[in-house]
Design a protein around this nucleic acid. Structure first.
Lengths: 106, 106
DNA sequence: ATCATATGTAAGTATTTTATTACACATATA
DNA sequence: TATATGTGTAATAAAATACTTACATATGAT
């Protein structure tokens, strides 16, 4: 169960989830861990783009990664889902909005 | 309780929620309905910008609006929260991802 | 050595989102 | 009439996000 410590954390998760590619990534990973190149082929997107999305998911703590040696002997970076489960309602948004910053990113 | 009919609907809601200004708007509206100009002053943002955000929230069905005559005799547009309450987990994302489209917007 | 597979990232472009400025129009009050 | 309040929107600018192309490096198999 995801617990949000503040509004910025909630926003980080919501931003990570508000993209169709990233939802697809989560859907694929929900069937089991997988390494980057394989994931890219499965999703039909370029590896650099996949990296971008995985990075956002990782920053929001929705996925994690480990290096592992494939049967072929090559190193591969495996990604897996963290526990993604939370409830969202107006009360929570109201409470967390006090610790939510409105800021420029760059 | 929000029920998502498909992946695109889920995404629409997540996109609407993934912005700090819009979370603040929801937080304010959770304390009661309010009209646009008043809301803009309370949030410290311009009315055109507020319109933009309210439109996104309305498209995601998170808020609704009604015109009403103020005590002063002027017409005002009141916004109020719809029921915002849902659970999100990997199973749901997995299921809804099948009806999720990856598309350009314009 | 060459081919296929893997990771990793820099640099540039395209698209979308967010925000501002400037209008038009209406009602009530001083 | 001038001022203050309200709605509504068009046009533009700025910022952030998404995506592409190109490259470097490494391992194993042919």
């Amino acid at each position: 169960m995801i617990y949000f410590n503040n509004g910025d954390e909630l926003l980080l998760v919501l931003e990570a989830l508000s993209n169709p590619q990233r939802l697809k990534i989560i859907a694929v990973l929900s069937e089991g861990r997988q390494y980057v190149s394989h994931l890219a082929r499965e999703l039909g997107i370029s590896r650099p783009l996949l990296y971008l999305h995985l990075q956002k998911l990782e920053e929001a703590n929705l996925v994690s990664s480990d290096m592992e040696i494939l049967e072929t002997g090559q190193a591969a970076k495996f990604y897996q889902l963290n526990d993604i489960h939370f409830v969202l309602n107006e009360q929570l948004i109201h409470d967390l909005s006090k610790s939510l910053s409105i800021k420029r990113k760059k």
